[in-house]
Write a protein that binds this DNA or RNA. Structure first.
Lengths: 220, 220
DNA sequence: GGCTAGAATACTGCATCCATAATTATGGAT
DNA sequence: ATCCATAATTATGGATGCAGTATTCTAGCC
């Protein structure tokens, strides 16, 4: 949640947890698979102790399940789960958007616009990674403007679960352009300081994301 | 989130984590205090290993902070935090209430009424503990009816933070009766299947809880 | 040939041990 | 007497070791 304190020499188990998160999100560790403590510890050149601590953290975050005496397994996320999660996300992100519409000052809006420009550029170049990154930054910026740390915290928690779902390469044909269009509408509402409209645009955006994911899920 | 599997012989670190949670919520371990690993391990008659794993979990839950090489400290929750948390809680619980109003069947409503009766009884007898317990059950039941596991999950997460705040013995004079009255209004809206009214009653109820907490905070 | 029972293997979970960093205490200098 | 430097103590973090249990492989039986 917080920016890492430059003074704080972060602990090994955190380092390991972060690397595991990335491998899980990259589906290098696919849902349902067993996590082998020994081989992972060897691979990282560490003992099992910090690795196991990292697994406890991931379990608390909901990314893996620890079955006592039976090991650690990467969690699966069902379509039903996704429906529920996106439902809550819609609620939370629209609240953030609504708050942002009321609180944003000139500087905020310029910065937001700058991020959106990066988004447009990435889309033109069909650079999925940069688009993904800029999209994250955009939503994060909206939340920053809203200024509710705990709202952001909860949203981050849920986003992890969405990233767990495979095929978050959700950018099938047209989805990219559609997403951009939704962002444009959102910004317009923000500039107009129309809180209710902004919230509605965000709801649309999130639900549209869910729909895109569902489409891919059905094809696979 | 899930009901504990009766077959699963839950791990030691979980047991320890639960005991620590209780001690933290009971403010036997007060916010800001240092958690001594050695003495705790001795007290529980275990080694530091499972204890440290438990602390990692609590840190992930936000109950404590682990400063690398400097030990573990119970988290504080500022008034600003509480404002933010209650804001999000209001949003989430009112959504649950709204969903419940639309989905509840006869059985659900009877059960909810039964729980509310326990609440009334506890209030009459001025049994704070039972009131607290029944109140939890009431909100949980509303969420069950709503039927969104992830909504419940994030609400639980936030509730932990509220419980962290001292003086959750927030039942100063009149608050008990006021809370009851709010519940009655909520049930009435539920019985009328008025989703929007139900949501509004829940918002009022949560914000009323925040106000009561704030009143006590100012006095202390 | 398939299934069950028993043994061997492998992995998890907890304890103990060791190294390193932080804190405190002590002694000296200003 | 106070402040700083250095040494001793203490606590954290990581590695290793060991016991107990789940799994798997094999052999015997149906």
């Amino acid at each position: 949640m917080n920016a890492p304190n430059p003074i704080a020499p972060l602990a090994l188990y955190q380092e390991v947890a972060e690397r595991l998160r990335q491998r899980i999100f990259a589906h290098e560790l696919t849902p349902g698979t067993w996590v082998d403590e020994q081989s992972l510890a060897e691979e990282y050149g560490i003992s099992r102790t910090p690795l196991r601590e990292a697994l406890k953290v991931l379990a608390a975050e909901g990314l893996v399940t620890l079955k006592p005496r039976r090991g650690c397994y990467v969690n699966e996320v069902s379509e039903r789960d996704l429906d529920e999660i996106f439902g809550v996300m819609s609620l939370l992100e629209s609240e953030a958007a609504s708050l942002a519409a009321r609180k944003a000052d000139k500087t905020d809006l310029t910065e937001l616009q700058a991020i959106h420009d990066r988004l447009e550029a990435a889309a033109r170049e069909r650079d999925i990674d940069r688009f993904f990154e800029a999209n994250q930054a955009f939503h994060r910026k909206v939340q920053d403007i809203a200024g509710n740390h705990w709202l952001t915290h909860v949203i981050d928690d849920l986003r992890k679960m969405i990233k767990l779902s495979r095929h978050h390469s959700l950018f099938g044909d047209g989805r990219l352009e559609q997403s951009l269009e939704e962002h444009r509408a959102l910004i317009a509402a923000l500039l107009a300081r129309d809180a209710e409209a902004t919230a509605q645009r965000m709801r649309d955006h999130i639900q549209s994301g869910r729909a895109a994911l569902k489409r891919i899920a059905q094809v696979r």
